[in-house]
């Protein structure tokens, strides 16, 4: 019994609990976590729980099962932090956070982002389908489409080498110099800093590479890219 307990480390965060799981099969990890919870239900009752899973690859059904089991015990799972892109995507699909907003000092990835400043970009080599939400503290580059129902929130610029038809928010921390560009810029919602526009989608509109930025009058403006400039 002691052995299984060691698989789970529970720590207090400012606004909830963090459960870190050691390397093991998902079944063992899950069982250990639930055993820990059932051992001390009063402590966990009503808790906001973040889960740290290291390199564990989690699929939607596994995470859904755990989320349901936790909610039966009155525990709210709000974040899953992992190294695997699959796990991250799974968490995003379920609307869970993939980073803990108040980073612990030893979080290497966070430190590096700050060191590199505005040069940091998240590169996504795939199409973002409906229900996917990507949030990043730097620039976001997508090699693929952003479909309606997908959402990108970036503190920096957003560049889509494909059709941008979802919702996009660049300069999300208030940077009014941020830009959004795409080979076909037809988002359902476009926001830069605090300027929002909703474009009516005209299917007859010719698709040109375009850039959206805030102009000198403080209004959102679209510019068609032309090779002559």
């Amino acid at each position: 019994m002691e052995e299984t307990r060691a698989l789970v480390q529970i720590k207090g965060l400012r606004d909830g609990l963090l459960a870190s799981l050691d390397d093991a099969s998902w079944e063992e990890q899950r069982a250990a976590l639930l055993a820990q919870v059932d051992d001390n239900p009063a402590f966990f009752h009503g808790a906001r729980l973040a889960l740290e899973v290291a390199s564990q690859i989690l699929h939607v059904n596994e995470l859904v099962e755990l989320r349901d089991q936790l909610s039966e015990r009155n525990i709210f799972l709000w974040a899953v932090v992992g190294e695997s892109p699959t796990t991250e995507q799974t968490a995003q699909l379920l609307g869970l956070a993939t980073r803990i907003s108040k980073p612990r000092p030893e979080e290497i990835r966070q430190v590096r982002v700050e060191d590199l400043g505005e040069e940091t970009a998240l590169f996504l080599n795939r199409t973002l389908r409906s229900g996917t939400r990507v949030e990043f503290s730097g620039h976001v580059i997508v090699l693929g489409d952003v479909n309606p129902g997908a959402e990108i929130v970036a503190e920096g610029n957003v560049l889509v080498w494909g059709k941008l038809r979802g919702a996009v928010h660049a300069g999300s921390n208030g940077d009014r110099t941020a830009v959004v560009c795409a080979l076909d810029l037809s988002p359902t919602r476009l926001q830069i800093a605090d300027e929002t526009t909703t474009l009516s989608l005209d299917p007859q509109r010719t698709s040109n590479p375009e850039t959206a930025r805030i102009n000198e009058h403080g209004k959102l403006q679209l510019e068609i890219w032309s090779p002559d400039r």
């Binding site: 699929h59 939607v60 059904n61 995507q89 389908r129 409906s130 229900g131 309606p148 129902g149």
Partner: peptide, 11 residues
């Protein structure tokens, strides 16, 4: 589209 996204993430 949403369903296809889930199927992709479930491999």
């Amino acid at each position: 589209d949403r369903v296809i996204g889930i199927l992709e993430s479930e491999e």
